[in-house]
């Protein structure tokens, strides 16, 4: 008899556990769907004066494209600005410094919300195989998580390569968990003419980027949810 009671109680508790798990997963899935749905709509914020912005600098050509965008962006609305570049890339942050210095002349000193410059481990180097990039990606994600907890940006501007993926994934989960709502903008590199880069494709397929911009009409045809914006360079 005692044994039977025990069985029933364990069965009941395991049932509750199963139901709870299903419940949590359902809530989570609904939340993810809501976040994806909400992300595709313009931000109906109470028109904040400015938004903290994370700018992910790729390298070489990517950085040049990003700076071209920054030069025409209403930078006084995007502040404070946090620049992140790969730890192996010395040039990009230097260029960002030059850009920030050029703003000092334009804006009144108190208007400049200050800029911070940070480095991050890369998830994949050019030419690295996809298999070993799994391990390096995990390290990059841990580092990115630490940075993202510190920054909690409201806007993320990125244009590849892989450096931006961990940051965007974390930003997405911050949205799902309600830690911080952010808008992710991804500008596909001008070097991509016929198909999206791995980073671009991931953000497109997983619907993590609020807006994905492409610079060639061929890409717009292939990926209809992308926005064609013409060449940046």
């Amino acid at each position: 008899m005692e044994k039977g009671d025990f069985c029933i109680s364990t069965m009941a508790s395991s049932n509750i556990a199963v139901l709870l798990t299903i419940g949590v997963i359902t809530v989570f899935v609904i939340r993810i769907i809501y976040v994806i749905y909400r992300s595709s709509k313009p931000l109906h914020s109470k028109s904040p004066r400015f938004l903290s912005t994370l700018i992910v600098l790729g390298s070489g050509g990517h950085t040049a494209e990003m700076l071209n965008l920054l030069y025409v962006l209403q930078t006084e609305k995007f502040k404070p600005r946090y620049y992140v570049a790969a730890a192996t890339d010395n040039m990009s942050l230097q260029k960002a410094h030059v850009f920030e210095d050029s703003l000092l002349g334009k804006e009144a000193l108190e208007e400049v919300g200050g800029a911070e410059f940070m480095q991050i481990y890369r998830s994949r180097e050019v030419g690295q195989s996809y298999i070993t990039s799994v391990g390096t990606t995990l390290i990059a994600i841990a580092h990115a998580l630490w940075l993202m907890i510190k920054i909690r940006p409201q806007v993320i501007l990125c244009n590849g390569p892989g450096t931006c993926i961990p940051l965007c994934v974390i930003a997405f989960f911050f949205k799902v968990l309600g830690i911080r709502w952010s808008s992710i903008f991804y500008v596909e590199s001008i070097a991509r003419v016929r198909k999206l880069s791995l980073s671009g494709l991931l953000l497109y397929k997983l619907r993590m980027a609020d807006q994905l911009f492409v610079q060639w009409p061929q890409l717009k045809e292939k990926y209809p949810r992308a926005h064609y914006v013409g060449r940046l360079m």
Partner: peptide, 8 residues
């Protein structure tokens, strides 16, 4: 487009 999306 970014500014419009953010409703600046």
């Amino acid at each position: 487009l970014i500014s419009r999306y953010l409703e600046f």
